[in-house]
Design a protein around this nucleic acid. Sequence first.
DNA 1: GATCAATAAATTGTCGACAATTAATTTGTT
DNA 2: AACAAATTAATTGTCGACAATTTATTGATC
Lengths: 236, 236
Amino acid sequence: MSTIMVETFQSPLGRLPVTSSDRLLLEMQRAIVEGELPAGSKISEPELARKFSVSRAPLREAMARLERCHLIERIPNAGARVVKLSIEGLQALYQIREELEGLACRLAAENMDEHEIEQLRALLDQHLQSQRVREGESYYQEAGDLDFHYRIILGSKNPYLINMLCDELYFLVRMYRVQLGMNGPRVSRAFDEHKAIINAIASRDGELADLLMRRHIAASRGNIELKLQQVGKQHD
Amino acid sequence: MSTIMVETFQSPLGRLPVTSSDRLLLEMQRAIVEGELPAGSKISEPELARKFSVSRAPLREAMARLERCHLIERIPNAGARVVKLSIEGLQALYQIREELEGLACRLAAENMDEHEIEQLRALLDQHLQSQRVREGESYYQEAGDLDFHYRIILGSKNPYLINMLCDELYFLVRMYRVQLGMNGPRVSRAFDEHKAIINAIASRDGELADLLMRRHIAASRGNIELKLQQVGKQHD
DNA sequence: GATCAATAAATTGTCGACAATTAATTTGTT
DNA sequence: AACAAATTAATTGTCGACAATTTATTGATC
Protein backbone atom coordinates (compact mmCIF):
# COMPACT_ATOMS: atom_id res chain seq x y z
CA MET A 1 0.00 0.00 0.00
CA SER A 2 2.62 2.49 1.07
CA THR A 3 4.70 1.97 -2.04
CA ILE A 4 1.64 2.54 -4.15
CA MET A 5 0.82 5.76 -2.36
CA VAL A 6 4.37 6.99 -2.71
CA GLU A 7 4.29 6.21 -6.39
CA THR A 8 1.34 8.43 -7.10
CA PHE A 9 1.33 10.99 -4.31
CA GLN A 10 4.94 12.06 -4.45
CA SER A 11 4.69 12.93 -8.10
CA PRO A 12 3.44 16.51 -7.86
CA LEU A 13 6.98 17.27 -8.93
CA GLY A 14 7.26 14.45 -11.42
CA ARG A 15 10.55 13.65 -9.71
CA LEU A 16 12.18 13.27 -6.34
CA PRO A 17 12.49 16.51 -4.36
CA VAL A 18 16.09 17.32 -5.14
CA THR A 19 16.27 21.01 -4.52
CA SER A 20 15.50 22.99 -1.43
CA SER A 21 12.69 24.73 -3.25
CA ASP A 22 11.19 21.31 -4.02
CA ARG A 23 11.08 20.37 -0.35
CA LEU A 24 9.63 23.75 0.55
CA LEU A 25 6.90 23.32 -2.03
CA LEU A 26 5.88 19.92 -0.68
CA GLU A 27 5.93 21.17 2.88
CA MET A 28 3.88 24.26 2.13
CA GLN A 29 1.41 22.34 0.00
CA ARG A 30 0.81 20.03 2.92
CA ALA A 31 0.57 22.91 5.39
CA ILE A 32 -2.00 24.75 3.28
CA VAL A 33 -4.06 21.69 2.37
CA GLU A 34 -4.26 20.63 6.01
CA GLY A 35 -5.06 24.14 7.21
CA GLU A 36 -1.86 24.64 9.18
CA LEU A 37 -1.45 27.81 7.15
CA PRO A 38 -5.06 28.98 7.53
CA ALA A 39 -7.17 29.83 4.51
CA GLY A 40 -7.13 33.56 3.86
CA SER A 41 -4.06 34.23 5.99
CA LYS A 42 -1.27 36.43 4.74
CA ILE A 43 2.08 34.89 3.89
CA SER A 44 5.11 36.79 5.13
CA GLU A 45 8.21 35.91 3.16
CA PRO A 46 10.76 36.84 5.85
CA GLU A 47 8.76 35.01 8.50
CA LEU A 48 8.38 31.80 6.51
CA ALA A 49 11.99 31.93 5.38
CA ARG A 50 13.05 31.97 9.04
CA LYS A 51 10.56 29.25 9.94
CA PHE A 52 11.91 26.91 7.27
CA SER A 53 15.52 28.05 7.67
CA VAL A 54 16.07 28.98 4.06
CA SER A 55 16.68 32.16 2.13
CA ARG A 56 13.92 33.96 0.31
CA ALA A 57 15.09 32.79 -3.12
CA PRO A 58 13.90 29.17 -2.91
CA LEU A 59 10.89 30.31 -0.90
CA ARG A 60 9.78 32.62 -3.67
CA GLU A 61 10.29 29.89 -6.23
CA ALA A 62 8.09 27.60 -4.15
CA MET A 63 5.50 30.35 -3.86
CA ALA A 64 5.43 30.78 -7.62
CA ARG A 65 4.56 27.12 -7.87
CA LEU A 66 1.97 27.40 -5.10
CA GLU A 67 0.31 30.12 -7.10
CA ARG A 68 0.29 27.81 -10.08
CA CYS A 69 -1.78 25.26 -8.18
CA HIS A 70 -4.14 27.95 -6.90
CA LEU A 71 -3.19 27.52 -3.26
CA ILE A 72 -2.07 31.12 -2.83
CA GLU A 73 -2.91 34.39 -4.56
CA ARG A 74 -0.25 37.02 -5.13
CA ILE A 75 -0.49 40.71 -5.79
CA PRO A 76 2.71 42.37 -7.06
CA ASN A 77 4.47 44.47 -4.46
CA ALA A 78 1.73 43.70 -1.99
CA GLY A 79 2.04 40.08 -0.95
CA ALA A 80 0.46 36.67 -1.02
CA ARG A 81 -2.50 35.13 0.79
CA VAL A 82 -3.65 31.57 1.21
CA VAL A 83 -6.80 31.03 -0.84
CA LYS A 84 -10.21 31.01 0.78
CA LEU A 85 -12.63 28.18 0.25
CA SER A 86 -16.05 29.14 -1.06
CA ILE A 87 -19.06 27.58 -2.70
CA GLU A 88 -18.46 29.55 -5.88
CA GLY A 89 -14.85 28.38 -5.96
CA LEU A 90 -15.87 24.79 -5.34
CA GLN A 91 -18.41 24.87 -8.14
CA ALA A 92 -16.00 26.44 -10.62
CA LEU A 93 -13.32 23.92 -9.68
CA TYR A 94 -15.58 20.91 -9.94
CA GLN A 95 -17.00 22.09 -13.24
CA ILE A 96 -13.51 21.76 -14.67
CA ARG A 97 -12.87 18.53 -12.83
CA GLU A 98 -16.00 16.91 -14.26
CA GLU A 99 -14.93 17.82 -17.75
CA LEU A 100 -11.26 16.88 -17.51
CA GLU A 101 -11.68 13.72 -15.48
CA GLY A 102 -14.48 12.67 -17.78
CA LEU A 103 -12.03 13.07 -20.63
CA ALA A 104 -9.39 11.22 -18.63
CA CYS A 105 -11.77 8.29 -18.23
CA ARG A 106 -12.54 8.19 -21.92
CA LEU A 107 -8.85 8.22 -22.77
CA ALA A 108 -8.04 5.70 -20.05
CA ALA A 109 -10.55 3.30 -21.57
CA GLU A 110 -8.60 3.62 -24.81
CA ASN A 111 -5.05 3.76 -23.53
CA MET A 112 -4.68 1.77 -20.29
CA ASP A 113 -3.15 -1.62 -20.89
CA GLU A 114 -4.52 -4.78 -19.31
CA HIS A 115 -1.89 -4.79 -16.60
CA GLU A 116 -2.75 -1.28 -15.48
CA ILE A 117 -6.45 -2.12 -15.38
CA GLU A 118 -5.64 -5.20 -13.31
CA GLN A 119 -3.69 -3.04 -10.86
CA LEU A 120 -6.61 -0.65 -10.64
CA ARG A 121 -8.91 -3.53 -9.71
CA ALA A 122 -6.45 -4.68 -7.09
CA LEU A 123 -6.40 -1.18 -5.64
CA LEU A 124 -10.16 -1.19 -5.29
CA ASP A 125 -10.06 -4.56 -3.52
CA GLN A 126 -7.57 -3.11 -1.07
CA HIS A 127 -9.91 -0.23 -0.43
CA LEU A 128 -12.83 -2.51 0.29
CA GLN A 129 -10.76 -4.44 2.80
CA SER A 130 -9.29 -1.44 4.53
CA GLN A 131 -12.74 0.12 4.62
CA ARG A 132 -14.08 -2.82 6.56
CA VAL A 133 -11.13 -2.71 8.93
CA ARG A 134 -11.14 1.02 9.51
CA GLU A 135 -14.77 1.95 9.36
CA GLY A 136 -15.21 5.70 9.52
CA GLU A 137 -11.52 6.50 9.34
CA SER A 138 -11.69 9.27 6.78
CA TYR A 139 -8.03 9.74 5.89
CA TYR A 140 -7.60 6.36 4.28
CA GLN A 141 -10.73 6.91 2.24
CA GLU A 142 -9.41 10.33 1.33
CA ALA A 143 -6.06 9.01 0.17
CA GLY A 144 -7.52 5.90 -1.42
CA ASP A 145 -10.07 7.81 -3.42
CA LEU A 146 -7.53 10.25 -4.72
CA ASP A 147 -5.19 7.40 -5.53
CA PHE A 148 -7.96 5.87 -7.65
CA HIS A 149 -8.51 9.11 -9.52
CA TYR A 150 -4.77 9.64 -9.96
CA ARG A 151 -4.34 6.29 -11.67
CA ILE A 152 -7.10 6.92 -14.15
CA ILE A 153 -5.68 10.32 -14.95
CA LEU A 154 -2.25 8.80 -15.50
CA GLY A 155 -3.94 6.11 -17.60
CA SER A 156 -5.13 8.78 -20.03
CA LYS A 157 -1.50 9.08 -21.17
CA ASN A 158 -2.10 12.73 -22.04
CA PRO A 159 0.77 14.71 -20.48
CA TYR A 160 -1.08 18.05 -20.44
CA LEU A 161 -4.11 16.48 -18.84
CA ILE A 162 -1.96 14.76 -16.23
CA ASN A 163 -0.16 17.98 -15.49
CA MET A 164 -3.32 20.04 -15.15
CA LEU A 165 -5.12 17.62 -12.91
CA CYS A 166 -2.37 16.09 -10.79
CA ASP A 167 -0.04 19.07 -10.50
CA GLU A 168 -2.40 22.02 -10.58
CA LEU A 169 -5.97 21.26 -9.59
CA TYR A 170 -5.67 18.37 -7.20
CA PHE A 171 -4.15 20.22 -4.28
CA LEU A 172 -7.13 22.50 -4.16
CA VAL A 173 -9.44 19.52 -4.45
CA ARG A 174 -7.65 17.92 -1.53
CA MET A 175 -7.88 21.16 0.42
CA TYR A 176 -11.66 21.18 0.09
CA ARG A 177 -11.86 17.54 1.05
CA VAL A 178 -9.44 17.61 3.96
CA GLN A 179 -10.79 20.80 5.50
CA LEU A 180 -14.46 19.99 4.94
CA GLY A 181 -14.21 16.24 5.25
CA MET A 182 -16.06 13.43 3.59
CA ASN A 183 -18.13 11.10 5.65
CA GLY A 184 -21.48 9.41 6.12
CA PRO A 185 -23.14 7.22 3.52
CA ARG A 186 -21.21 8.96 0.75
CA VAL A 187 -18.08 6.96 1.53
CA SER A 188 -19.47 3.52 0.75
CA ARG A 189 -21.45 4.81 -2.20
CA ALA A 190 -18.23 6.18 -3.70
CA PHE A 191 -16.77 2.68 -3.68
CA ASP A 192 -19.63 1.37 -5.77
CA GLU A 193 -19.22 4.20 -8.21
CA HIS A 194 -15.51 3.45 -8.48
CA LYS A 195 -16.30 -0.15 -9.25
CA ALA A 196 -18.71 0.82 -12.03
CA ILE A 197 -16.11 3.14 -13.54
CA ILE A 198 -13.47 0.41 -13.60
CA ASN A 199 -15.89 -1.97 -15.27
CA ALA A 200 -16.59 0.57 -17.98
CA ILE A 201 -12.87 1.14 -18.54
CA ALA A 202 -12.17 -2.61 -18.56
CA SER A 203 -14.81 -3.16 -21.22
CA ARG A 204 -13.27 -0.30 -23.19
CA ASP A 205 -16.48 1.71 -23.04
CA GLY A 206 -15.02 5.18 -22.87
CA GLU A 207 -18.33 6.94 -23.31
CA LEU A 208 -19.85 5.19 -20.31
CA ALA A 209 -16.73 5.64 -18.18
CA ASP A 210 -16.86 9.35 -19.00
CA LEU A 211 -20.51 9.62 -17.96
CA LEU A 212 -20.03 7.66 -14.74
CA MET A 213 -17.03 9.72 -13.72
CA ARG A 214 -18.93 12.96 -14.28
CA ARG A 215 -21.76 11.75 -12.09
CA HIS A 216 -19.31 10.54 -9.47
CA ILE A 217 -17.67 13.93 -9.28
CA ALA A 218 -20.99 15.77 -9.29
CA ALA A 219 -22.14 13.67 -6.34
CA SER A 220 -18.89 14.37 -4.52
CA ARG A 221 -19.35 18.08 -5.10
CA GLY A 222 -22.84 17.96 -3.68
CA ASN A 223 -21.47 16.37 -0.54
CA ILE A 224 -18.88 19.07 0.04
CA GLU A 225 -21.35 21.82 -0.86
CA LEU A 226 -23.55 20.74 2.01
CA LYS A 227 -20.63 20.98 4.40
CA LEU A 228 -19.73 24.43 3.13
CA GLN A 229 -23.27 25.66 3.67
CA GLN A 230 -23.23 24.34 7.22
CA VAL A 231 -19.96 26.11 7.94
CA GLY A 232 -21.34 29.27 6.35
CA LYS A 233 -24.37 29.23 8.63
CA GLN A 234 -22.16 28.87 11.69
CA HIS A 235 -20.42 32.11 10.83
CA ASP A 236 -23.64 34.10 10.45
CA MET B 1 -9.52 47.27 -33.31
CA SER B 2 -6.24 47.90 -31.58
CA THR B 3 -7.86 48.70 -28.27
CA ILE B 4 -9.80 45.48 -28.46
CA MET B 5 -6.66 43.51 -29.09
CA VAL B 6 -4.87 45.16 -26.22
CA GLU B 7 -7.77 44.42 -23.94
CA THR B 8 -7.59 40.71 -24.49
CA PHE B 9 -4.01 40.03 -25.54
CA GLN B 10 -2.19 41.91 -22.86
CA SER B 11 -3.96 40.03 -20.13
CA PRO B 12 -1.79 36.94 -19.85
CA LEU B 13 -0.83 38.53 -16.57
CA GLY B 14 -4.31 39.63 -15.64
CA ARG B 15 -2.75 43.03 -14.97
CA LEU B 16 -0.37 45.57 -16.42
CA PRO B 17 3.27 44.45 -16.51
CA VAL B 18 4.51 46.22 -13.42
CA THR B 19 7.57 44.26 -12.47
CA SER B 20 10.68 43.55 -14.47
CA SER B 21 9.87 39.86 -14.36
CA ASP B 22 6.47 40.67 -15.91
CA ARG B 23 8.10 42.41 -18.87
CA LEU B 24 10.60 39.60 -19.28
CA LEU B 25 7.79 37.06 -19.35
CA LEU B 26 5.91 38.90 -22.08
CA GLU B 27 9.05 39.38 -24.13
CA MET B 28 10.12 35.76 -23.83
CA GLN B 29 6.63 34.47 -24.55
CA ARG B 30 6.65 36.48 -27.75
CA ALA B 31 10.16 35.35 -28.65
CA ILE B 32 9.32 31.68 -28.18
CA VAL B 33 5.92 31.81 -29.87
CA GLU B 34 7.39 33.56 -32.90
CA GLY B 35 10.38 31.25 -33.06
CA GLU B 36 13.00 33.86 -32.24
CA LEU B 37 14.11 31.50 -29.51
CA PRO B 38 14.03 28.36 -31.65
CA ALA B 39 12.06 25.30 -30.60
CA GLY B 40 14.30 22.81 -28.86
CA SER B 41 17.11 25.28 -28.18
CA LYS B 42 18.77 25.44 -24.80
CA ILE B 43 18.20 28.48 -22.60
CA SER B 44 21.30 29.84 -20.90
CA GLU B 45 20.42 31.93 -17.86
CA PRO B 46 23.58 34.07 -17.83
CA GLU B 47 23.31 34.68 -21.56
CA LEU B 48 19.66 35.72 -21.50
CA ALA B 49 20.20 37.83 -18.40
CA ARG B 50 22.86 39.79 -20.28
CA LYS B 51 20.70 40.01 -23.39
CA PHE B 52 17.78 41.51 -21.47
CA SER B 53 20.00 43.51 -19.09
CA VAL B 54 18.56 42.10 -15.89
CA SER B 55 19.80 39.91 -13.10
CA ARG B 56 19.04 36.24 -12.95
CA ALA B 57 16.42 36.61 -10.22
CA PRO B 58 13.61 38.07 -12.33
CA LEU B 59 14.73 35.92 -15.26
CA ARG B 60 14.28 32.77 -13.23
CA GLU B 61 10.89 33.96 -12.06
CA ALA B 62 9.87 34.53 -15.66
CA MET B 63 11.18 31.09 -16.57
CA ALA B 64 9.11 29.48 -13.85
CA ARG B 65 6.07 31.06 -15.45
CA LEU B 66 7.19 30.00 -18.93
CA GLU B 67 7.33 26.46 -17.66
CA ARG B 68 3.81 26.86 -16.37
CA CYS B 69 2.53 27.62 -19.86
CA HIS B 70 4.50 24.72 -21.33
CA LEU B 71 6.79 26.89 -23.43
CA ILE B 72 9.97 25.60 -21.81
CA GLU B 73 10.93 22.39 -20.03
CA ARG B 74 13.28 22.45 -17.06
CA ILE B 75 15.42 19.76 -15.50
CA PRO B 76 16.80 20.57 -12.03
CA ASN B 77 20.50 21.40 -12.01
CA ALA B 78 20.63 20.77 -15.74
CA GLY B 79 18.84 23.58 -17.51
CA ALA B 80 15.87 24.56 -19.61
CA ARG B 81 14.97 24.05 -23.25
CA VAL B 82 12.34 25.58 -25.48
CA VAL B 83 9.65 23.00 -26.22
CA LYS B 84 9.57 21.17 -29.51
CA LEU B 85 6.44 21.01 -31.62
CA SER B 86 5.20 17.56 -32.53
CA ILE B 87 2.10 15.85 -33.82
CA GLU B 88 1.69 13.97 -30.55
CA GLY B 89 1.95 17.22 -28.61
CA LEU B 90 -0.53 18.94 -30.89
CA GLN B 91 -3.05 16.15 -30.50
CA ALA B 92 -2.72 16.03 -26.72
CA LEU B 93 -3.06 19.81 -26.54
CA TYR B 94 -6.08 20.00 -28.80
CA GLN B 95 -7.76 17.13 -26.99
CA ILE B 96 -7.80 19.32 -23.89
CA ARG B 97 -8.71 22.39 -25.86
CA GLU B 98 -11.76 20.70 -27.38
CA GLU B 99 -12.98 19.71 -23.97
CA LEU B 100 -12.32 22.96 -22.15
CA GLU B 101 -13.44 25.33 -24.89
CA GLY B 102 -16.51 23.22 -25.41
CA LEU B 103 -17.24 23.73 -21.73
CA ALA B 104 -16.46 27.42 -22.10
CA CYS B 105 -19.04 27.69 -24.86
CA ARG B 106 -21.66 25.96 -22.81
CA LEU B 107 -21.01 28.26 -19.87
CA ALA B 108 -20.82 31.31 -22.11
CA ALA B 109 -24.29 30.51 -23.45
CA GLU B 110 -25.49 30.61 -19.85
CA ASN B 111 -23.45 33.46 -18.47
CA MET B 112 -22.70 36.04 -21.16
CA ASP B 113 -25.00 39.03 -20.94
CA GLU B 114 -26.69 40.55 -23.98
CA HIS B 115 -24.15 43.32 -24.21
CA GLU B 116 -21.22 40.91 -24.35
CA ILE B 117 -22.92 38.86 -27.02
CA GLU B 118 -23.55 42.03 -29.00
CA GLN B 119 -19.85 42.91 -28.76
CA LEU B 120 -18.95 39.43 -29.94
CA ARG B 121 -21.15 39.89 -33.01
CA ALA B 122 -19.52 43.25 -33.68
CA LEU B 123 -16.11 41.62 -33.50
CA LEU B 124 -17.11 39.08 -36.11
CA ASP B 125 -18.36 41.83 -38.42
CA GLN B 126 -15.00 43.53 -38.08
CA HIS B 127 -13.30 40.30 -39.02
CA LEU B 128 -15.40 39.90 -42.13
CA GLN B 129 -14.55 43.42 -43.23
CA SER B 130 -10.85 43.18 -42.52
CA GLN B 131 -10.82 39.79 -44.21
CA ARG B 132 -12.17 41.31 -47.40
CA VAL B 133 -9.65 44.13 -47.23
CA ARG B 134 -6.63 42.03 -46.37
CA GLU B 135 -7.24 38.82 -48.24
CA GLY B 136 -4.62 36.27 -47.35
CA GLU B 137 -2.95 38.34 -44.66
CA SER B 138 -2.62 35.65 -42.03
CA TYR B 139 -1.66 37.64 -38.96
CA TYR B 140 -4.96 39.45 -38.68
CA GLN B 141 -6.83 36.19 -39.00
CA GLU B 142 -4.54 34.71 -36.39
CA ALA B 143 -5.12 37.50 -33.90
CA GLY B 144 -8.80 37.86 -34.75
CA ASP B 145 -9.51 34.19 -34.33
CA LEU B 146 -7.77 34.05 -30.98
CA ASP B 147 -9.57 37.18 -29.91
CA PHE B 148 -12.86 35.46 -30.69
CA HIS B 149 -11.91 32.44 -28.62
CA TYR B 150 -10.63 34.62 -25.78
CA ARG B 151 -13.95 36.41 -25.47
CA ILE B 152 -15.94 33.23 -25.24
CA ILE B 153 -13.59 31.86 -22.64
CA LEU B 154 -13.93 35.04 -20.62
CA GLY B 155 -17.68 34.80 -21.12
CA SER B 156 -17.71 31.49 -19.28
CA LYS B 157 -17.04 33.48 -16.09
CA ASN B 158 -15.19 30.51 -14.62
CA PRO B 159 -11.89 31.82 -13.24
CA TYR B 160 -10.10 28.47 -13.29
CA LEU B 161 -11.16 27.84 -16.85
CA ILE B 162 -10.05 31.31 -17.89
CA ASN B 163 -6.71 30.83 -16.19
CA MET B 164 -6.06 27.44 -17.71
CA LEU B 165 -6.95 28.41 -21.24
CA CYS B 166 -5.81 32.03 -21.51
CA ASP B 167 -2.78 31.93 -19.24
CA GLU B 168 -1.49 28.41 -19.68
CA LEU B 169 -2.55 26.69 -22.86
CA TYR B 170 -2.99 29.51 -25.33
CA PHE B 171 0.64 30.42 -25.77
CA LEU B 172 1.39 26.94 -26.96
CA VAL B 173 -1.64 27.06 -29.24
CA ARG B 174 -0.36 30.31 -30.68
CA MET B 175 3.10 28.80 -31.10
CA TYR B 176 1.69 26.01 -33.25
CA ARG B 177 -0.35 28.45 -35.27
CA VAL B 178 2.30 31.10 -35.75
CA GLN B 179 5.09 28.69 -36.59
CA LEU B 180 3.00 26.42 -38.80
CA GLY B 181 0.61 29.01 -40.13
CA MET B 182 -3.03 28.87 -41.08
CA ASN B 183 -4.05 29.56 -44.62
CA GLY B 184 -6.02 28.40 -47.65
CA PRO B 185 -9.74 27.68 -47.58
CA ARG B 186 -9.62 27.02 -43.84
CA VAL B 187 -9.55 30.76 -43.12
CA SER B 188 -12.93 31.63 -44.61
CA ARG B 189 -14.49 28.44 -43.33
CA ALA B 190 -13.43 29.35 -39.82
CA PHE B 191 -15.44 32.57 -40.07
CA ASP B 192 -18.59 30.64 -40.87
CA GLU B 193 -17.99 28.35 -37.93
CA HIS B 194 -17.51 31.34 -35.66
CA LYS B 195 -20.81 32.75 -36.85
CA ALA B 196 -22.63 29.51 -36.08
CA ILE B 197 -21.12 29.40 -32.62
CA ILE B 198 -22.24 32.94 -31.84
CA ASN B 199 -25.75 32.13 -33.01
CA ALA B 200 -25.89 29.15 -30.69
CA ILE B 201 -24.65 31.24 -27.77
CA ALA B 202 -27.08 34.04 -28.56
CA SER B 203 -30.00 31.63 -28.55
CA ARG B 204 -28.71 30.27 -25.25
CA ASP B 205 -28.22 26.81 -26.71
CA GLY B 206 -25.19 25.74 -24.72
CA GLU B 207 -25.27 22.17 -25.91
CA LEU B 208 -25.10 23.19 -29.55
CA ALA B 209 -22.45 25.83 -28.91
CA ASP B 210 -20.38 23.16 -27.17
CA LEU B 211 -20.70 20.77 -30.11
CA LEU B 212 -19.91 23.41 -32.72
CA MET B 213 -16.85 24.59 -30.85
CA ARG B 214 -15.50 21.07 -30.54
CA ARG B 215 -15.87 20.56 -34.27
CA HIS B 216 -14.32 23.93 -34.98
CA ILE B 217 -11.27 23.06 -32.93
CA ALA B 218 -11.02 19.57 -34.38
CA ALA B 219 -11.02 21.06 -37.88
CA SER B 220 -8.37 23.54 -36.89
CA ARG B 221 -6.24 20.74 -35.51
CA GLY B 222 -6.54 18.82 -38.75
CA ASN B 223 -5.26 21.84 -40.63
CA ILE B 224 -2.16 22.20 -38.47
CA GLU B 225 -1.56 18.45 -38.48
CA LEU B 226 -1.23 18.54 -42.25
CA LYS B 227 1.37 21.26 -41.99
CA LEU B 228 3.31 19.35 -39.37
CA GLN B 229 3.40 16.25 -41.56
CA GLN B 230 4.70 18.33 -44.47
CA VAL B 231 7.46 19.77 -42.31
CA GLY B 232 8.26 16.29 -41.01
CA LYS B 233 8.71 14.96 -44.53
CA GLN B 234 11.07 17.78 -45.41
CA HIS B 235 13.41 16.73 -42.64
CA ASP B 236 13.54 13.07 -43.72
C1' DG C 1 -12.77 63.73 17.32
C1' DA C 2 -12.27 62.69 12.45
C1' DT C 3 -9.81 63.21 8.12
C1' DC C 4 -5.96 63.88 5.42
C1' DA C 5 -0.85 64.48 4.66
C1' DA C 6 3.70 63.33 5.81
C1' DT C 7 6.80 60.35 7.74
C1' DA C 8 8.51 55.83 9.36
C1' DA C 9 8.46 50.89 9.19
C1' DA C 10 8.01 46.83 6.88
C1' DT C 11 7.63 44.05 2.76
C1' DT C 12 8.49 42.92 -1.92
C1' DG C 13 11.53 42.98 -6.08
C1' DT C 14 16.20 42.96 -7.72
C1' DC C 15 21.11 42.51 -7.59
C1' DG C 16 25.87 40.45 -7.35
C1' DA C 17 28.52 36.75 -5.26
C1' DC C 18 29.23 32.09 -3.59
C1' DA C 19 28.26 26.96 -3.21
C1' DA C 20 26.72 22.73 -5.31
C1' DT C 21 25.85 20.18 -9.21
C1' DT C 22 26.36 19.06 -13.97
C1' DA C 23 28.65 19.13 -18.45
C1' DA C 24 33.07 19.45 -21.06
C1' DT C 25 37.90 18.81 -21.50
C1' DT C 26 41.96 16.69 -20.69
C1' DT C 27 44.75 12.96 -19.48
C1' DG C 28 46.07 8.25 -19.02
C1' DT C 29 45.43 3.49 -20.13
C1' DT C 30 44.39 -0.57 -23.07
C1' DA D 1 42.86 5.09 -31.89
C1' DA D 2 39.16 4.34 -28.57
C1' DC D 3 37.53 4.23 -24.07
C1' DA D 4 37.61 5.51 -19.04
C1' DA D 5 38.80 8.37 -15.23
C1' DA D 6 40.05 12.60 -13.41
C1' DT D 7 40.24 17.37 -13.70
C1' DT D 8 38.54 21.68 -15.29
C1' DA D 9 34.98 24.78 -16.79
C1' DA D 10 30.41 26.25 -16.86
C1' DT D 11 25.75 26.32 -15.22
C1' DT D 12 22.27 26.07 -11.79
C1' DG D 13 20.65 26.79 -6.93
C1' DT D 14 21.08 29.56 -2.84
C1' DC D 15 22.42 33.36 -0.01
C1' DG D 16 22.61 38.09 2.13
C1' DA D 17 22.15 42.95 1.06
C1' DC D 18 20.10 46.91 -1.24
C1' DA D 19 16.40 49.54 -3.80
C1' DA D 20 11.58 50.33 -4.75
C1' DT D 21 7.03 49.99 -3.37
C1' DT D 22 3.44 49.44 -0.17
C1' DT D 23 1.45 49.55 4.45
C1' DA D 24 1.31 51.41 9.13
C1' DT D 25 2.07 55.20 12.16
C1' DT D 26 2.37 59.76 13.44
C1' DG D 27 1.19 64.55 13.26
C1' DA D 28 -1.33 68.42 11.58
C1' DT D 29 -5.57 70.62 10.21
C1' DC D 30 -10.54 71.32 10.05
